[in-house]
Design a protein around this nucleic acid. Structure first.
Lengths: 237, 237
DNA sequence: TTCGTTGTCGAACACCGTTCTACGTACGAA
DNA sequence: TTCGTACGTAGAACGGTGTTCGACAACGAA
């Protein structure tokens, strides 16, 4: 403003020096903020850059690519997870608590599951969660190999659940239409050919139960925990 | 060729009438072929149209959008699944067979899991698979509600597994590098801070076992089947 | 002070799904 | 047989994506 407009001596001193510099941390912060605010679709390199007042190319000095940014967001989110200390007396309850806690964080960052699925979580916080889950399993007497695979299976289940929810959440219909959709589904099941789909028809009600809420997730958690419990070698007690 | 080039009487009669017309079936065929040949990334509306010798806009007369095309591919693939007839004596074995069969088809169409996850499979063939799986579960005495949720949980697990594999398959490193990657992973686990990651270090070997092959999947299948078995109410026998 | 390294960032590339719109062709009605 | 219309075709374009290029500016070391 106070400079001659016809002779741009150092063109406006872009006020960039005044602004705090771009860092990996600020980028992840902004990305997560965008994720919480507007969902996973909104987290594009362009939108993150725009939110930071710059162009997309600038991000690549701090982040290798979008996938790495996803991983960084994931690990930042993993820091929110508070898993219980292992208590041999209640390992099954604790395992379920832990599963709900992971799901809670996944839900807090809708769409993050999309980044998490199929990626080995190597971030520090994610690995701390794994460590705690291993402790619970070992406290319960689950054999080493089973425990090792379980800490792969359990996040897989939770992530897939969260992914599913995020897909449905990102779909066109609003959550309040969900009940109507389920109703539609149930009547569709009921209208099938009874000769070919007898069980689907008979169980139409059961299959469409628990579309919202945690009933389905809780069932999966129970199945997994019971399955793991069956692998604990019998000792005394 | 045999027409005067300077006076295009009926401009070349675009040989389009000679070509068989576009149909939904041909589109799905081409898309699946592309999927098998080049992976999920290659299945774009543009590439499918190009393979059919036309432009992307033409597809929209037969297919609502990409998502519907994904669903159609999925159901076509589901037609390949051959699930066993229910036999009460061997329901657990049969359930595992069924799970492997679904996985086999998912693997035959790499990346299809990406389309399947989070979608209620309503196609005819997909629902026939569900029906057969319900039959196996009911033959085993699994309660109705558990069976109904199980036919949701089981495909979720399989799809997530296939998804994971397709992500790793689409990654930069070739499958032959996988062993090296696993080795790297193991040594990374081993180099962690023993005070904070004692179990991760102790189980580094177990956690990196079965990266390729079916060991991990088999474990998941065993856990789920055992968990379901524990829900079968005890009767005689 | 000069040099070289490093972060910044507008522009561009090659894609993507989808829509608009003009154009032919084919078919039913007159 | 002719006409009108409705429908499938498809080029072009819109707005979006991740990523790369290359010019530029800022700063620390020599």
């Amino acid at each position: 403003m106070n400079q001659s407009p016809w002779q741009p001596i150092t063109p406006a001193k872009p006020a960039r020096a005044a602004r705090e510099p771009l860092t990996r941390e600020r980028i992840v912060d902004t990305a997560l903020h965008l994720l919480v605010e507007q969902g996973y679709e909104a987290v594009s390199m362009r939108k993150v850059a725009q939110a930071l007042g710059t162009g997309p190319a600038s991000l690549y000095a701090h982040v290798a690519n979008k996938k790495e940014l996803d991983q960084l967001m994931l690990d930042r989110a993993a820091a929110d997870m508070k898993l219980p200390d292992a208590d041999p007396e209640r390992w099954q309850d604790q395992l379920k608590e832990a599963m709900y806690e992971v799901l809670r964080v996944m839900r807090a960052y809708p769409g993050l599951a999309r980044a998490a699925i199929g990626q080995v979580p190597l971030g520090e916080y994610a690995m701390l969660s794994t460590e705690r889950m291993l402790a619970i399993l070992k406290a319960g007497g689950v054999p080493d190999q089973a425990a090792a695979w379980a800490v792969d299976l359990i996040p897989l289940f939770i992530t897939a659940t969260a992914f599913e929810e995020s897909v449905q959440g990102a779909a066109d219909f609003a959550p309040e239409d969900l009940e109507g959709f389920v109703e539609q589904l149930r009547s569709y099941f009921g209208s099938l050919d009874p000769a070919r789909f007898p069980l689907t028809i008979a169980l139409a009600g059961a299959m469409t139960t628990g579309a919202s809420g945690d009933e389905r997730f809780d069932f999966g958690a129970r199945v997994i925990i019971a399955g793991l419990a069956s692998m604990v070698p019998e000792t005394d007690a």
